[in-house]
Design a protein around this nucleic acid. Structure first.
Lengths: 157, 157
DNA sequence: CCCATATCGTTCGTGTACGTACGATGACAC
DNA sequence: GTGTCATCGTACGTACACGAACGATATGGG
């Protein structure tokens, strides 16, 4: 017992002074979020039904389906994307003919975005797969844990 | 009660058949992970002590600090990065003089990576701020919830 | 020994994601 | 009205993340 204290003279790198656990990258929230997000994206890509649609594109299409018409800036706020990022996402969706735009008659700064007929058809199809993608991502957890995780995540956003 | 059934002929978009809740993007695990990861990255960037070090670079440096010398491929596996991604991360770290490399004497395919003196000094400084970054990210939750979240996340990776 | 197979690192292309800076427009105070 | 300030969309640069393809090197079976 006493020798235990004596040995402390040369602490290993991973030692934890005080009561806090050792600081390990693998236990940090940022690291875990990055890894979990990677896995979720991978499952999304293989399960949503169109390998060319990314998660951010999907959420943008879904929001446009919900609201019919939105300014680019507002859409960005609704799906949590920087306006510069939004610009690239919208450009690609327009290039593919999934989204259309027209100037806002009441505010010359704004561009109003909406789904094309093709965009509506696609998002309708993809949203059928949405629940299965979420289910697969959460599969390692039981029902209560799944709910807990969603709740905890939404509270740290 | 009976009229309720009759009305079902024209369900709104957000209707949920059966017992499942309506499918909303904001409640999906992938969406929440993306947003949470965004916030964590933002807190990291402003709190780690060097705005030019990214989360992936930080975890790479920390792992090299732990293992002294690693092949690029193995480092990538340890920090959960694609080898193509790893290549870019390592290139930038070498350009900044934080990481050094030498050919593996026993296997000509491998490159052994290690921290330079400057890299060691920097990672030592940054790791002092690591706990505060994690604490800030988890601040909206109490101690038990924080533990739960880390546990749930590690189980879906 | 030699060939098939696997691994390692690189390169290229695409798509997020963000910071910064810029011009154009709108809103408001004066 | 005119000037100031905020907002909207754009442009550019950097960094992650992944798939695909490639050359070089190891390795195991025959």
């Amino acid at each position: 017992m006493r020798s235990n204290v004596a040995k402390k003279q040369h602490e290993p790198k991973t030692a934890s002074s005080a009561a806090s656990r050792p600081y390990r990258i693998e236990d940090q929230i940022g690291y875990l979020l990055r890894r979990a997000h990677q896995r979720a994206s991978s499952i999304f890509q293989s399960g949503i039904g169109d390998p060319n649609i990314t998660p951010t594109q999907y959420s943008s299409l879904a929001k446009l389906d919900e609201y019919t018409e939105l300014s680019q800036n507002l859409l960005g706020r609704l799906v949590g994307m920087d306006k510069a990022t939004m610009q690239g996402v919208v450009r690609r969706l327009k290039e593919r003919g999934l989204v259309d735009s027209r100037p806002d008659p009441g505010d010359a700064r704004r561009t109003l975005l909406s789904l094309t007929t093709e965009g509506q058809k696609l998002v309708g199809k993809l949203m059928l797969n949405g629940p299965a993608v979420s289910r697969e991502t959460l599969k390692p957890l039981n029902a209560q844990e799944q709910k807990q995780l969603l709740d905890l995540l939404s509270r740290i956003i």
